[in-house]
Design a protein around this nucleic acid. Sequence first.
DNA 1: CCCTTTCTTGAACTGTAGGTACAAAATTTC
DNA 2: GAAATTTTGTACCTACAGTTCAAGAAAGGG
Lengths: 192, 192
Amino acid sequence: MGRPKQFDPDVAVEQAMQMFWRQGYGATTPQCLIDTLGIGKGSLYNTFGSKRQLFDLALRRYLDLQNSAVTELLEGSGPVKERLRKALLVVAETDLADPDRRGCLALNTAMEFGRTDESMTAQVQDMFDRIEGAFRALIEEGQRAGEIDPGRDAKGLASLLLSTVNGMRLMARVESRPDRLIRVIDTTIDLL
Amino acid sequence: MGRPKQFDPDVAVEQAMQMFWRQGYGATTPQCLIDTLGIGKGSLYNTFGSKRQLFDLALRRYLDLQNSAVTELLEGSGPVKERLRKALLVVAETDLADPDRRGCLALNTAMEFGRTDESMTAQVQDMFDRIEGAFRALIEEGQRAGEIDPGRDAKGLASLLLSTVNGMRLMARVESRPDRLIRVIDTTIDLL
DNA sequence: CCCTTTCTTGAACTGTAGGTACAAAATTTC
DNA sequence: GAAATTTTGTACCTACAGTTCAAGAAAGGG
């Protein structure tokens, strides 16, 4: 009973996520949020408690979505190197995959918060491990298939890929140089 | 004539740089600065104009210092791969080179500011080009010396190294996993 | 020895981010 | 239709970052 919500909290979290992603945490003021979400301040705080709690929901959503993308990678078929190339495009959020070049929400905010926020770094570290694990599985598949030299250390290659991808994500956010990112991807695939 | 300064502005910029490096721009308040630099608020603003102008000086100093380190790389002697390994350690500011794991001041703040600040992104882009150029020169030297396969595209490899190093810088700031960084370095050298 | 100049200091000012309280309104169930 | 419950938006509050300023202190010039 009682009056039902006039907006969908899930949609609101999605919109907030987009906003945090584009502008960062600090630059996204409560006023910004209510303007974009189209709801009143009262509703915002009544529903989500605080800006930070809303952000936590948004980040969780982001990580879940990314997680799906990563596992999707593993379940694909076809030549491993081609899947890897596509993965680099997607995970790195290059200009081709995201014209807005927002980089990675988790990385951006982890950098913004610095090392002060324990729960944030923990989540990002978890993301690192997950991506590295996905790369490793993909590499090992490639080694079994004879596409990649089995003599190489799969874990080491996976760590390298993780670092490279993070570098691309960072560069995608700071500068606008698709040519550089493409060169990184091509060279990486070529080296394996 | 007039009363002489009771502090050395150069020293102040150095201390401010360390502070911005450790805490980021936003987290470094004027109060923080005057406590650390040991001067009054008035002196701070009288000498440097604003927090932002002081930061610009600090960033310039950082980039100059890093620039020296990069060119030093090129002028070294000995096996290219060994120099490259050392370069990765130094440029990436891994735990071994910097126990505080502050990452890279320029990258940290570029991420913090986002794409809004034109003068900042320009400086960072310049840094990217410089580092990439240094790597490329080193790789070409290695190719001439027969250490590195001359069939590979030096520019592509240099871009890859830049991305990898940026990824390491980022990870060094967010998490504390020296083993992962070491693995990245070893694998990278091994691949060339 | 005073006067000008330049610096120093800490208190006061300004704007805004983030959050709270409240009164009016709206929608559901009984 | 009335009660109950929750919405909404405005107005308000607090804290602090960033800056300015007026009064005073240390140097040199006349």
